[in-house]
Nucleic acid binder design. Structure first.
Lengths: 139, 139
DNA sequence: TGTCATACAGACCAAAAGGTAACCATGGCC
DNA sequence: GGCCATGGTTACCTTTTGGTCTGTATGACA
């Protein structure tokens, strides 16, 4: 992603998708919402992802200002990654995606294959989920 | 995308992203929200996309049940693509993405590069946008 | 018979995204 | 000097995605 900012789509929805649709970005962000995390911590939290790709995704999110990187010059070195305000503003959107994904799985009888969005709020409290549900099953 | 259903991610948010993050899916869906469209119509509405890729995206959305394909055996043949209920339930989510994308551009002073989400509702009426805004600029 | 419009299909290619495995730099500590 | 941990980088490969260009089936109609 050379010159990433220059290449973001001009349609807002596509821009948003481009920014968050990376293979691991949602889960990483999700763990950063809890608290700042060190690289080694993130590796333990998401063991399926290789270190190179993890750093790659973090760098992209840093460029898009979803994530902040702080270096503490210690021995051994310490680097903290945390969610910026812009990154946090994505939480309701990710929640909407999560709820819609669950609804979609439900419609196709695949809920059993799903894993929970864990600490994210429940469906009923999310206005987007309500809107989507209203479309699926009108009163 | 062979066996597309078998391969959808097990995390709901990732599942949702996988389903809608295709290069042209948002715009296609957006045009289908208006009314059913014929292939030739869609080609005119989104001239940048090649026919093969257009069909590809439509087929994937059909498999994920966002889109319905109806064949009318006429001469010349006629095929209508339309948004299913499941496809329509995505509208609030796309709207949320659109609003967030605009906010993101605003934060980075790139709004001028953006194009409008046209007939989609305005920011102020969208609860997700409100939530995201509240995070960015707390009262 | 040839041409037309519509909707597709297939061969092939290019770029992007994701992934593996190996290596490097720092500085404390034994 | 050799080893440790942390947080990287680099070279290389595979898969996925998007794209071009060409071919095809149908049946009306001139």
């Amino acid at each position: 992603m050379a010159d990433p900012m220059k290449r973001l789509p001009i349609l807002p929805a596509e821009r948003a998708l481009k920014i968050i649709a990376g293979r691991w970005k949602a889960i990483i962000l999700y763990h950063l919402y809890d608290r700042p995390r060190r690289l080694s911590e993130l590796r333990k939290l998401v063991p399926e992802i290789s270190q190179k790709v993890l750093i790659q995704q973090l760098r992209e999110m840093e460029e898009h200002q979803l994530v902040r990187r702080e270096i503490f010059r210690q021995v051994p070195p310490r680097v903290d990654y945390s969610a910026t305000t812009l990154g946090r503003s994505l939480e309701p959107v990710l929640l909407a995606l999560c709820d819609w994904g669950r609804m979609h799985a439900a419609e196709l009888d695949e809920v059993d294959r799903l894993v929970d969005c864990a600490r994210l709020e429940r469906t009923t409290s999310n206005p987007i989920a309500k809107a989507a549900e209203a479309i699926l099953s009108p009163a």
